[in-house]
Design a protein around this nucleic acid. Structure first.
Lengths: 262, 262
DNA sequence: ATGATAGTTTAGGTAGGACCAAATAGGCGG
DNA sequence: CCGCCTATTTGGTCCTACCTAAACTATCAT
């Protein structure tokens, strides 16, 4: 749609007028404006991580906005994980770069809000995690291997409770993601694993048998990653998560899920 | 760590005291408390989508908090995409379920904030998109096919500007994701595509040749999806995005990227 | 001197009131 | 019945005051 200048029009009073045509315009909230400004500056790297923004009352004098508005803006940035706010003297808003946590929580919101099917979660994991394994095999460092081994040990203890097992399970999967050295994938996996963990928790299909198989699969995949055998890592991870998905879906039988709070 | 009750101690004044041991405690902000409460209720489904929360001033009387606090809480929910706030009479906070948008924006923040390498973005896409293609082949509806065809036509016009081409390109990829009928994957792809689009924009390696190849690849993949040939869809998509990634990286030569504003 | 303790200062957190701006509901006149 | 206008509701902004948290400082007792 185009809005052209209209011809001048003479009104009854004789004044020359131009019939201006205005499109419905959006008046952004003051706090959003401030928040956007600060966000851009932060992301642009104007303030290195850890530096403190000016105190609220000074932002007030600088921006000539009310303290309410300034505070709202800072709150927004806090929710988005761009600043961390500390109280007390020498407190204030400290710049930080949003971590995987922020992704995870927003993914969690999506999952809970849209009541995403467990099947979809598992599908997504089947898509992402083999790739993580591949990259992990390529780029893993010694520290990554250590983390994997630790998780493996924790998961192996036959005596642990179900919750312990599931937690160790999640830890291992996260460790693989971290080893991929791809922060995006890591963020996704973090969010996914937690949600899957949560929905698997009360399914109660994890028996001793499942635990043994899981431990074995993890060991083999870890071995492939250590050997930097990307092909094997992909293949085994693919089989592992697929088997898990199948097992879950067998128990599940197409039910809508409940993902508990974060 | 455990905190046990200590034995009673007699102070010099003769008063009987119990040396209570307190762990550093976190005093949550009032607005967070309210926000959490409302969030849980919303996600729990207490308010169906589209219903309006009570007006601010009524929440004030109900919660006995100040309006400032109530407003902050609502603002948080708005940022998280759980409510949409309208002004004016009959306005207020309307419940909505967080869409792919919220994921996309938070992923975008992560990418910009952590200065994620273009290589990592492409890696991630290589991980996700073949899976999208597979699922699309399985679950695509007629509407999905229509969307794919439309994007294909838009992209085919040799006369369009670079920006048009890239936009149509993104649209097609998104269409594939949508066809997968997996909202999580769709959200991821949405975020990814935009960022990749943005960073590819000023690389200027997209010439007529690249455009022809792209169109061709899209056509073939679309065909596979139409024919519900999951295997072919995966294979072709894999090759397509991999080729694209290789081409980009060749031009890129390991440079840190600049992803412009959302 | 030294170490505990009580102020002091600087920051964010909460409260409540006043007023502005947007948008609709509802009444009024044609 | 329709269009206009006003009244009212509801969010947006500002202001001012006061509370609380935390770090610094001076003071006082040992």
């Amino acid at each position: 749609m185009r809005y052209d200048m209209a011809d001048p029009v003479i009104s009854e009073t004789g004044t020359t007028r131009h019939a201006v045509q205005l499109n419905p315009m959006q008046v952004p909230k003051a706090s959003d404006v401030l928040a956007n400004e600060l966000r851009e500056r932060i992301l642009h790297g104007d303030f290195p991580e850890g530096t403190a923004l000016p105190p609220e009352r000074e932002l007030v004098t600088q921006t000539r906005m009310s303290r309410t508005t300034v505070r709202e803006a800072l709150r927004i940035l806090e929710v988005q994980g761009l600043v961390r706010i500390k109280t007390g003297r020498a407190g204030g808003a400290f710049v930080q770069s949003p971590g995987e946590e922020s992704i995870a929580s927003s993914v969690n919101l999506l999952i809970r809000g849209k009541q995403i099917r467990l099947a979809a979660l598992l599908e997504t994991r089947e898509a992402i995690e083999p790739a993580c394994a591949q990259l992990a095999a390529q780029y893993r460092t010694d520290a990554d291997l250590t983390r994997l081994e630790e998780a493996n040990e924790a998961i192996s203890s036959e005596t642990g409770s179900l919750a312990d097992f599931l937690q160790a399970n999640v830890d291992w999967h996260i460790a693989v993601a971290i080893a991929s050295h791809n922060e995006l994938l890591t963020g996704f996996m973090l969010a996914l694993s937690r949600s899957i963990y949560a929905s698997t928790d009360n399914k109660g299909f994890v028996d001793a048998e499942v635990r043994r198989t899981t431990v074995l699969a993890h060991r083999n995949i870890t071995k492939a990653i250590r050997a930097q055998d990307a092909g094997a890592a992909v293949r085994r991870m693919k089989r592992h998560v697929h088997a898990y998905a199948e097992a879950v879906m067998e128990v599940e039988d197409r039910t809508s899920i409940e993902v508990p709070r974060s």
